[in-house]
């Protein structure tokens, strides 16, 4: 059987489904009412996301 990109994307979807299941098992329910404002700029709040440049123990 010829393997096409459709087959590969189906495999990717299965993998991502597994990530979402794992996420659902360990995460608190979503709450849009406690979400940060749309734009960080002008919000008066420090950024709360994590980044690849994060040094051990920080969330910069």
């Amino acid at each position: 059987m010829m393997i096409t990109r459709w087959h590969a994307v189906l495999l990717l979807l299965v993998m991502m489904a597994a990530v979402f299941v794992a996420d659902a098992l360990s995460s608190a329910p979503l709450d849009p009412y406690r979400a940060p404002p749309l734009f960080a700029l002008g919000s008066g709040k420090a950024p709360s996301g994590a980044h690849c440049s994060a040094v051990v123990g920080t969330d910069k």
Partner: peptide, 25 residues
């Protein structure tokens, strides 16, 4: 992205987080 998230574009942290979630699961 910088204006919305308050931090620059990144990739790697998210991938590590997905694996960490899998490990915990």
């Amino acid at each position: 992205h910088l204006v919305v998230a308050g931090q620059p574009w990144g990739v790697v942290y998210g991938l590590g987080l997905w694996a960490a979630k899998g490990v915990i699961a």
